[in-house]
């Protein structure tokens, strides 16, 4: 929430919200996937964004939330039932955070006009909406966002693993 507020300060930073958030999700992802070997852990992780998408619009929202569930299921399946190894966690985490870069940004890039008009109608300042219209007009930027998110997830997972190895495993906690 706090993070979302900070990242929303201007139209330019909002676009990198998925990347920054996925960094922290990446760290958490390692701990959750190692420590909670029970099934459904990732699914529960996915419930909140799923509900968010579901609520955020009618048809787009429903498609979005189905997408999140689908991604969570795939991520869950990659982890498998047994205690996952390092590679599996990374791949699964990368799949999982796709929801932010692909689904979360889909409306912004695919329906830029509608998105911007909605923002305007909600009372967001005109200059910012123009910024956004320009920015989301550049479709190649979407690829950049997806790549940046994947990279940040990767770094997050790497840090998570480092903490795992340096501390938690050494202390015999996992």
């Amino acid at each position: 929430m706090v993070l979302a507020a900070v990242m929303n300060i201007s139209g330019y930073t909002a676009i990198f919200y998925p990347a920054v958030a996925s960094f922290f999700i990446g760290i958490l992802y390692v701990i959750v996937s190692c420590k909670v070997p029970k099934r459904f852990a990732v699914l529960i992780f996915g419930i909140v964004p799923c509900a968010y998408f579901f609520a955020s619009g009618l048809i787009e929202g429903v498609i979005g939330s189905i997408g999140v569930i689908l991604l969570s299921f795939i991520a869950e399946a990659i982890l498998g039932k047994e205690r996952p190894d390092a590679a599996k966690i990374t791949v699964s985490g990368l799949v999982y955070t796709l929801y932010m870069s692909i689904i979360g940004m889909a409306e912004n890039f695919l329906f830029t006009d509608k998105y911007c008009n909605d923002a305007l109608a909600h009372g967001i300042d005109g200059t910012i909406v123009e910024q956004m219209r320009q920015m989301y007009g550049m479709k190649w930027l979407w690829a950049v966002v997806i790549a940046a998110t994947a990279l940040c997830t990767f770094i997050g997972i790497a840090i998570g693993k480092a903490i795992m190895k340096k501390h938690l495993r050494k202390a015999g906690l996992v």
């Binding site: 300060i9 201007s10 139209g11 967001i124 910012i128």
Partner: peptide
């Protein structure tokens, strides 16, 4: 104008999610 463009997004977005 500068202050408005700085504050607009967070204020509007957070406000509109207050009912939730």
């Amino acid at each position: 104008q500068t202050v408005v463009s700085l504050l607009s997004l967070p204020v509007v977005n957070i406000r509109s999610f207050f009912p939730t």
